[in-house]
Structure formats: structure tokens, C-alpha cells
Amino acid sequence: MEEQVTVQIDRDAVHWARRGEGLPLLVLLHGYGSDEKDLFALVPFLPEGVAVASLPAPLGAPWPMPGRSWYPIQELERRDPATVTAAADAVLRWLDAETADAPSIALLGFSQGASVAIQTMRRDPERISAVVNLSGYASPGDLPNDPGLRERRTPVFWGRGTNDDVIPPELVEHTAQWLPEHAELSGRVYQGLTHSVSEDELADVRRFLERWLEDAQAEG
């Protein structure tokens, strides 16, 4: 049985663009050792007509690492999804409190933040309309709503580099098997890219998000 863990998002630290305009919402989840200011720098590369919220991870990264973390980095080795799930539940509680006017919600995460984005989608498939997974992975283990997600086929974009040696190969392999079974998967492997984001990748992400916005407008 998973250990029950509770963590919270600091609402006062969230960075917003176009808040309160009733627009579809894109939530940014940064990587390990970073903070809410990092991915917020991507706003100029994102589509128009979307509100953006960049969240701070709930935990401090252990000294001497700067920034914050969504869960202890040791989870990459332990393969225990409990703390990843706790971070996802913190995102869902933040959505409950702050996003009542959003007609559609997508998540964009990098590395650790991407694993939390996928886990959030798994915890509440009806809430999350699209996910961008940049250099991240799907956490091993089954969750109760996975069968519903398999039926729903939420669009997921997965971008990663050929020279990314941060995510263990077995987790990359697990994700490569898990995502096509549970989502409408698109994406690209970028030649020579390390554990980072490139301009080509951002262009692909923008096109993916534009399709999400088109679908959100059609449903609205």
C-alpha cells in the first residue's frame, strides 16, 4: 500500500499570465532544482489566447541543490509512485481552488514536472484535456483511473533528446510502452538534444497546444 503523503502548492508564489480572463489554462510544472520562474520564460513561445500559470513545486531541493522539487529525487531509483501521486494531488487541489473559470486545462511539465503532469492526468482524466511531457516519464504502477484514461485517449506530446542521460533508460522504455496504451500520443525524439528544451521542440509544442485550443473552442 502506498504511503499517504500530503504536500501543498504555495499559491502566493504562482506566476500568472492573462489570469482571470476565462481563457483555456496551461499549467507549467518545472523540473527538479528549478522554480516557478523557469518555465514562465516560455510564455512568449506559447500560443495566444491561453492563460498560463507556472507553479512552484511544494518541496525544497536538498542542499546544496538550489530551487525546488516535486518529490525526492530518490524516487527515480525506488520506483515508488506515492510521492509522485502526492505531488499530483497537490496540483489538483490547487486547480480546485484557483481555476473555476477555466473552460479547458492542459499541463506542460519538464523532467520531474512532466512526471507529475502525467500523474495528475491519471488521477483525474476528466479534468486534464492535454499534457506536454518534456524529458519526463510515466511513473510505474497502476492507478484506479487508468482504465478510464485508456478509454478517454487524452492527447499527450512527448519530447526528449537522444543525448538525455538523466532519465534512466528503463523508465524511458516503460513510458514508451505505457503512453501509447493510455493516451493519444504524439511527439518527437530530437537528435543531439540533452536534458533540455530546444527551439525545434518549442515549435512542436506550440503546434500541439494550438490543436488543443482548437479542440477546446470547438467543444465550447
Rank of each mutant, 00 (worst) to 15 (best):
Q4R: 13
V7G: 05
E21Y: 06
L23H: 01
P24K: 05
V27A: 05
Y32H: 13
Y32M: 14
G33W: 04
S34K: 02
S34N: 06
D38E: 14
D38S: 12
P47T: 01
V50S: 08
S54A: 15
S54T: 03
P56A: 12
A57F: 00
A57Q: 00
G60P: 00
A61Q: 07
W63V: 13
P64C: 06
M65I: 14
S69R: 02
I73H: 04
E75V: 14
D80V: 05
A90D: 04
V91L: 10
L92K: 12
R93C: 02
W94D: 03
W94A: 08
W94Y: 15
L95D: 00
A97C: 07
A97W: 11
S104I: 09
L108V: 08
F110E: 04
Q112D: 12
G113D: 11
Q119F: 02
T120F: 09
P125I: 11
N133K: 01
L134G: 00
S135K: 09
G136N: 11
G136F: 07
P140G: 14
G141W: 08
G141T: 14
P147A: 15
G148I: 05
G148S: 06
R150N: 08
R150P: 09
R152N: 08
T154C: 14
P155D: 01
N163G: 05
D164G: 06
D165Q: 12
V166G: 06
T175H: 11
W178G: 04
A183Y: 01
R188S: 03
V189K: 00
Y190F: 14
Q191W: 11
G192H: 02
H195G: 03
D200T: 07
D200C: 14
E201T: 05
D204H: 11
F208A: 07
L209T: 05
W212G: 03
D215R: 13
A218P: 00
